[in-house]
């Protein structure tokens, strides 16, 4: 086959439009048109933010048009959004207090952003303090206990009983016991993170390859070097694996503490507070914020894991 024939074949193939590639984009445009021009059955906020959101989704659809999975997911998201929009805004005749329209939820973000930002900041601060202290303490103590055969034998049965107790249950008690809500939250997050990582560190150290330890002994390392240059790097990946699970648990307990405690700030408080006043538009908005927050946290953790544990 000569060169011109090849290019001709390429040209033949290139212009073939795959219609399925543009399904999500077309759906976005359709839904935007419906939102804009089909009259609302209920009293609604401005359509502009909703259409902007659809435009964003459509843009993602154009960028990711070659990936089938991305297309499928976008299609699903747009269909769900459309069902939500049509069910609550177009087909309904009055706004049900439990089911706000998407426009109303987006409107909350545009008007209430200062408070939401403040709540996110509070939650992040609490989470950070409790999480870092819990992970650090668990990793160090776990390595020390895991290294000592005797300490392990004595402590393991006790730790095994303590580990699975859901730390949520301590919440009401710690809130009273601790001097302030901050300390209560940090203590609860600490407890929720500590036991699981502590246990997995003990197992990681005891599952370590004997050859590595023998080699270290041959090289005549001292105690500190053993802990910080051999055991810690060996166990770090195990700890990092656990972090994903731990952050969900930490978020769960913090969230719960904010809901039942005497907090006056935080994402959980925002949801619980507005649920108390039956302002479910803000509740739904808060739930979305919480979801995005956790997903972002987790992806940051995943990045951090691959950055810290480069040797794996």
């Amino acid at each position: 086959m000569n060169v011109s024939a090849k290019s001709a074949l390429g040209e033949l193939r290139a212009p073939r439009v795959q219609w399925s590639a543009f399904v999500p984009v077309l759906l976005c445009a359709l839904l935007a048109a419906v939102a804009q021009w089909v009259p609302d059955g209920v009293e609604n906020e401005s359509h502009a933010p909703f259409i902007a959101l659809l435009a964003l989704l459509g843009a993602i659809g154009v960028i990711e048009r070659r990936k089938q999975s991305a297309r499928d997911i976008l299609t699903l998201v747009v269909v769900l959004l459309g069902a939500w929009e049509i069910a609550t805004a177009k087909a309904a005749t009055s706004v049900h207090f439990l089911f706000p329209t998407p426009e109303m939820v987006l409107h909350v973000y545009l008007t209430d952003y200062a408070q939401i930002g403040k709540n996110i900041a509070t939650t992040s601060l609490f989470l950070l303090c409790g999480f870092i202290s819990g992970v650090a303490a668990a990793t160090l103590l776990g390595i020390i206990v895991g290294w000592s055969v005797r300490a392990k034998k004595i402590l393991l049965p006790i730790v095994k009983v303590l580990t699975p107790i859901p730390p949520l249950i301590y919440t009401p008690y710690l809130i009273v016991l601790m001097p302030s809500f901050f300390w209560a939250s940090v203590a609860i997050i600490f407890l929720s993170v500590f036991w699981g990582i502590f246990l997995s560190m003990i197992f990681a150290v005891s599952g370590m390859d004997q050859k590595l330890i023998d080699m270290a002994t041959t090289l005549n390392v001292n105690r500190a070097q053993l802990y910080f240059h051999i055991l810690l790097p060996y166990c770090l990946p195990h700890a990092m694996d656990r972090l994903q699970q731990a952050i969900t648990a930490a978020f769960m307990v913090l969230f719960n503490a904010e809901m039942i405690g005497n907090a006056f700030s935080g994402v959980g408080w925002y949801i619980a507070w507005n649920a108390r006043f039956a302002d479910y538009t803000k509740v739904v908005a808060g739930i979305f914020i919480a979801g995005v927050f956790v997903v972002l946290l987790k992806s940051i953790l995943r990045r951090a894991r691959s950055a810290v544990v480069r040797w794996r």
Binding site: Q68, S69, D72, I73, L76, L98, T248, A249, F251, M252, F255, N256, M259, G268, I271, A272, A275, A278, Y280, V283, V284, I287, A290, G291, V294, V295, K298
Partner: peptide, 25 residues
């Protein structure tokens, strides 16, 4: 391929987050 990314996102979100809403609904 459709389900896994969605499940990844949803499994990250603690279910207690939507508890107050579930109680209402």
């Amino acid at each position: 391929n459709l389900v896994v990314p969605i499940a990844d996102v949803f499994s990250a979100i603690p279910a207690l987050v939507y508890a107050p809403y579930a109680v209402a609904v």
